[in-house]
Amino acid sequence: MDEKLYKPFCISVGEIIKEMSDIDVVGMDSLEEERHELTSMGVSSIITFAGARKGRLLLDMEPGLALSMAGAVLGEEYGDVKDPMVLSLVAEVNNIISGNAITGINNELLMDLRLAPPVVFAGRDVVISIPRLRSLSSWGETEYGRIRINIAWEGGGS
């Protein structure tokens, strides 16, 4: 596993969330292989990219964390993760995390990866499947709930 393709995202999650909402994320230091299906913890955002290689980044968290982040960043209390502002915030956080990490990878590994806009969703018993792509997940904890980043790269042994 080429760490350079995974670590930047794990590092980015903690930094960005701390910077934006002052919430501490602990524990995102190891990566584990994920199965082809993940069960969403409540709110999930997917950003995909193409270029020299293709891939997918999934940011997934418990509703309590999404609501707390929205409250801290936007200055208002939100009661439901399906509120468009809460969903938009999770999407924007994923956008910044992925954008920063991908820019670093582009600069360091001289790739030309471009991101599609984020997709974000919340629902009941949501399961996400990425067919035929191996992925690694890193888990983190905050005082408001858990968070996970899942990173998948297409083609050639990751």
Partner: peptide
């Protein structure tokens, strides 16, 4: 294009 960024900056 993000309403979040607008809200953030405005605050």
């Amino acid at each position: 294009d993000s309403p979040i960024i607008h809200k953030l900056l405005r605050r």
